[in-house]
Design a protein around this nucleic acid. Sequence first.
DNA 1: CTGACTGCAAACGTTTTGCACGGTA
DNA 2: TACCGTGCAAAACGTTTGCAGTCAG
Lengths: 136, 136
Amino acid sequence: MQNLLELLKKNKLKATPQRIKILEILFSSGHVTIDDLYEKIKTYLPTLSLATVYSNLNAMIKAGIVKSVKLSNNKVLYECNLNDHIHLVCKKCNSIKDEFIDKKAVLGLIEKDVGVNACDMEINLYYVCPKCSEFE
Amino acid sequence: MQNLLELLKKNKLKATPQRIKILEILFSSGHVTIDDLYEKIKTYLPTLSLATVYSNLNAMIKAGIVKSVKLSNNKVLYECNLNDHIHLVCKKCNSIKDEFIDKKAVLGLIEKDVGVNACDMEINLYYVCPKCSEFE
DNA sequence: CTGACTGCAAACGTTTTGCACGGTA
DNA sequence: TACCGTGCAAAACGTTTGCAGTCAG
């Protein structure tokens, strides 16, 4: 995918096959745990090491391409940092759904209370997903 | 402190001195790391073990009395889950400031977009704290 | 050609576990 | 008294590090 290659170059990161594959998976999956990510990549790049995945994620987080989100169950998710979305987290099964909201309106409302200029905002809503509320 | 004792009993947790002290510190400190917490408790309860602190925190998290927050530097903070506040996290030094907002208004704004009833909401604002912006 | 990236193994700090003992309800 | 909670040590877990070899620019 040409644009991923350029995305890396634009951020002064070498475009290795490992990094491109990591980004591809992040783009198509929305958000994944390290284990999911490692599992999925291994089918394409069997020799890839977990340490490399970590170091690449950290490098791309530093560059601002990737974002990590820690949920209340202390699991960490990685995702690409392009879309303006929040997370709906199911309290029962920990499944996660992306949801798009008017972040500017929310940020405006909050900044009025707080009196600070924020460069980023992270919102997680905890709820019970449809599947889990069926079996309550 | 009588109300802490009742808070534990109400949630079907035995009111041991260790748990009461943990809650006292969480209440007075806002949010603390495990190390801070352990350090502070040890002056009152020198025989306390770290494993006990962990198991008590986990028990109280399950009961909903305590909450844990994982920051982008992978440090975990514990806090009591009674106040309606959000976190201002400094992007440079990772310091954290509690800030109180009108959560209901924010939640209302978001739920309108999302069409879901949330039982809890977590908001983190990333900014540059006054100390760090001095030395930029 | 050169510095950055990879893969591996070992190290690291944090959290959990198993078990005997002790204290709360 | 019965059971939950404690303390200790060891194990497990997720992540980082160091290093030799490799590859992208």
